[in-house]
Amino acid sequence: MTGAVMNPAWALLAPVVLGVLALAGAALNGVFVARAEGRPALSGAARPVLEVMRLMRQRRRVTVAADRLLWRIGGMALLVIALLKTAVIPLGPWILADISVGIVWFNAMDVMVWAGMWLIGWGANSAHALAGGYRFLAQAVSYELPLMFALVTPAVAAHSLRVSEVVDAQQDLWFVVWMPVAFLVFCGSVLAFSAWGPFATAAGADIAGGILTEVSGVDRLLIMAGRYALLATGAAFAVALFLGGGSGPLLPDWLWTIVKTLVLLAGFIAVSRRLSAIRPDRLAEVAWIVVLPLALLQTLVVSIIVAVRG
């Protein structure tokens, strides 16, 4: 599957696929919420669509002395970053830009999320929003290093930073089998950079919604959609790095990729509702003293195995 040259026109399809995945995630979340509130599941599944229509019509609320330029940039950033990530994510045999440093590209994009989240918090000129923006950065310095080592591990095993080669290297054995710690750290980091579930503290209820406190209308829509899109791209990238990409019996490659991505995405959303928030002040010590050494150890073990096998 390496080196399949693609017509750039396919790039137009990527946002559609991403949009469908994000919408599926939102619908599933809606179903969970509806079930928790004792409403019919279908009303929950329709909720994202209704919410899109509501937010499209809602007038923007503006705060006093808001830095509108940075605020708008931050609001758009998450969705744009998710779209830029899709460039290096393979869908079965196809990949938009199979660049030699695909994994680093993904990493660079999730660092962009730092800027985006902080700008959303900053722009509103509101105490709660600002606390949310700072919280995200505090969380980011906890998850980023473990995430980097989780990304490095499959690259070490595949001798390449090219995503398609990482997928190819898993023909015999999926990486999740012999690098489970890296997989779990990566999944946790996906939740963290999407500000989701236990890592949604930047938008936590304990700071009155944090970065989301003051955003409304289209800005809010873009941010919510961006978070789902980041979650979806994270799931899709985990499929490529750890779950064998499109490999699987019977179904075509691209369908397997989508099925696996959806399953992982559903897992992210289901798990998230059952966990209480992990505040950054609690996370920092654990991330640096426990998780980072574990991730390093995982990288070391994989490196030794790779070196021994030659």
């Binding site: 928790a36 209820a205 304990d206 966990l275 928030a277």
Partner: peptide, 16 residues
């Protein structure tokens, strides 16, 4: 309290 700690499923059960 459960909502503030972000444990939505438990908060939802208590609310129901």
């Amino acid at each position: 309290l459960l909502a503030l700690v972000g444990w939505w499923s438990a908060a939802g059960r208590a609310r129901r």
